[in-house]
Design a protein around this nucleic acid. Structure first.
Lengths: 224, 224
DNA sequence: CGGCCGCTTGAACCCAATCAAAATTCGTGG
DNA sequence: CCACGAATTTTGATTGGGTTCAAGCGGCCG
């Protein structure tokens, strides 16, 4: 699933269907920093993230980088374009995945349930990307960062006694390249949220959200 | 198909397959300015544009608008998210479409060829949206406008004796909302391209591209 | 001919990028 | 365990590209 704030409602992780589980043809395990596939590689399998987190990136000829999405448990990645991978996929942390034959997507024969589940995942992806368009096309920097945190919270948030907490497995640069900003700007937005008391940072990777409502408000410029 | 410059190669209109043709369950015709469906509507049918052009838009609560895509002949639109339309669809010009049952996408039973074609269209859409991410996340205003023209040229360009020509059925505001810019900025970029001799404008809708190579260069910041 | 709407042009401003440097974290080896 | 160096994050000062605000232009249709 793509990390982008929904205008409608939160899109939660699709449960890892037992149905799908049974059709997995294999498992994969990649360590932090390792690459699962590169843009242009032949797509042999699709993957569902089981644990950990991955990063999908694309590069422009001149080196500019766009983080297309982050993949968290439940997300299905590796949809082909013309049979080829569309982005590089790297592990942000040690990650376990299971894999499916590409043919399970393209012709469901024999495994209609799996076929359907993969198709639904593709449709969800289209939706998530549209949400991200709203981010990149319409929102200003503080809205983007707030939106990002809201979505991360929905995806991976844990409830504590002082608020909800979320671990960010990606670097500030990754976040910046995902949001179409620079590291400095992302950092400044974090600082502003911290100073306003909406969040606090245990360390740069661990965010405690003290005021979820205020964060959600910032995500949509209902400022002050 | 989404109007976005490909980093790899141009993605041309998928030919309107005879196969698909035979499975069409209906036709639709909408006049300029009319709406085919709204965000949130139940998806009953998917559509393939036959002639004309449509615009897919989404709104933020506060009224900010993002043009998600333009649909030209060959493009398939209307992919559901959770059974609902994800964007508003309006006709930029009088448009003819043919329609397919949503079930043809979701379960191909009886019509595997159509099912497959719709799935491929969904995968193409994912790819096209990724290209658009590069646009919104990485490119500056003049690159965006140049990229946009390059893609429009690929999609709808006609060859003349003085260069290739393309008709833009959408307004400057539509282009701006598609590219994540303002009307003024888009207009200024057009003017800059005109002054540099790369394009000329018969009227604001009709662009004659005099130097395709230079336009392509601007699309990637290999400036001057 | 006149009014309206979309496009273009101009000037001032502002948000985020850039450039630069300090602070903090992290890994490595003594 | 601490010391050191590298990398990441944060902070600060300045610049610049795109927005905003405002006004002119031009085509189209009554």
């Amino acid at each position: 699933m793509y990390v982008t704030t929904s205008t409608n409602h939160a899109r939660f992780t699709p449960p890892i269907s037992e149905e799908i589980e049974s059709h997995a043809i294999g498992a994969a395990r990649i360590h932090e920093g390792e690459c699962l596939y590169y843009e242009g590689d032949e797509v042999e399998r699709l993957y569902q993230v089981l644990t950990g987190a991955v990063r999908l990136t694309r590069l422009l000829e001149d080196g500019r980088r766009q983080v297309i999405a982050f993949g968290f448990p439940g997300d299905i990645i590796g949809f082909p374009n013309d049979g080829l991978h569309q982005a590089d996929c790297d592990a942000l942390t040690d990650t376990k995945l299971k894999s499916f034959r590409r043919s399970a997507l393209e012709n469901g024969e024999g495994e209609p349930a799996l076929h359907f589940a993969l198709l639904q995942a593709a449709l969800r992806e289209i939706h998530a990307m549209q949400e991200h368009f709203m981010m990149l096309g319409l929102k200003c920097s503080d809205e983007r960062v707030a939106s990002f945190l809201v979505t991360m919270l929905e995806r991976c948030g844990e409830t504590t006694n002082v608020g909800r907490r979320v671990f960010l497995p990606m670097s500030r640069l990754d976040i910046a390249d995902f949001l179409g900003l620079t590291v400095e700007t992302v950092s400044r937005c974090f600082t502003a949220l911290r100073r306003s008391g909406i969040i606090s940072l245990k360390n740069s990777q661990t965010v405690l959200v003290r005021d979820e409502a205020a964060l959600a408000a910032k995500a949509l410029k209902e400022h002050d």
